[in-house]
Simulated scan of single mutants.
Amino acid sequence: MPIAFSKYHGLGNNFILIDNRHQAEPLLSQAEAIEWCDRNFGIGADGVIFLLPDTNSQESGQGNGHVMRIFNSDGSEPEMCGNGVRCLAKFMQDLEIKPIAADPTNGQPNPHYKLQTGAGLIGLQLDADGQITVDMGEPHLLAKEIPTTLVDAEEKAIAIDLEVAGQTWQVTTVSMGNPHCITFIDDVAKIDLAAIGPQFEHHSAFPQRINTEFIQVRDRNYVKMLVWERGAGATLACGTGACAVVVAGVLNNVCDRQCTVNLPGGDLRIHWSETTNHVMMTGPAVKVFTGLQADGIN
Rank of each mutant, 00 (worst) to 15 (best):
L126T: 10
L126P: 09
N20A: 04
E213T: 02
L162N: 05
R269S: 08
P26V: 08
G44V: 01
C181I: 01
E25C: 08
N56K: 11
F184T: 03
Q108H: 15
Q170F: 01
G120S: 02
G166E: 11
I3P: 05
N83Q: 06
R257Q: 12
L115R: 11
M92S: 11
K287T: 12
D295I: 15
D94V: 00
R230F: 03
M280Y: 15
Q199I: 08
D256T: 10
G118L: 00
I18F: 03
V48H: 15
P284C: 09
E213K: 05
T172V: 11
A102P: 07
V247W: 13
A195M: 12
D129F: 02
D19G: 12
V279W: 01
Y113P: 03
T173Y: 09
I297T: 13
I160Y: 09
I43C: 11
A285Y: 08
V174H: 15
K190N: 14
K224R: 13
K190L: 06
V261Q: 05
G123N: 06
H271C: 00
C243T: 09
F91P: 14
P104L: 04
I122D: 11
R209T: 14
P264E: 08
E32H: 03
L11W: 13
P179L: 01
D152W: 01
T149Y: 13
P139W: 05
F184R: 08
G233E: 05
I3S: 04
P139D: 05
W36A: 14
G61H: 11
Q258G: 02
H66C: 10
N178P: 08
A194I: 04
G241C: 05
L52D: 10
A159H: 10
M1Y: 15
L150G: 12
G107F: 02
G166C: 03
N14T: 07
D161K: 13
K224Y: 07
A244P: 04
V188C: 06
N72Y: 05
G42F: 08
H202R: 05
L150D: 12
G166M: 05
I146D: 14
A24F: 03
G177K: 05
D103Q: 10
D267W: 02
N252I: 02
N178I: 00
T133F: 03
C181K: 00
P139Q: 06
L292Y: 07
E138T: 12
T212C: 06
G10C: 05
S73G: 06
D219Y: 06
F184K: 07
E59R: 08
S175D: 13
D19Q: 14
V174S: 13
K98R: 13
L268N: 14
G107C: 04
T276F: 04
R220G: 02
G75D: 13
D129V: 01
G197F: 08
P26T: 13
V67N: 10
K98Y: 02
D256E: 12
G291H: 08
W228S: 07
V48N: 08
E229W: 00
R257H: 13
S175C: 09
Q208H: 12
Y113V: 01
Q208P: 04
V254L: 12
G63E: 10
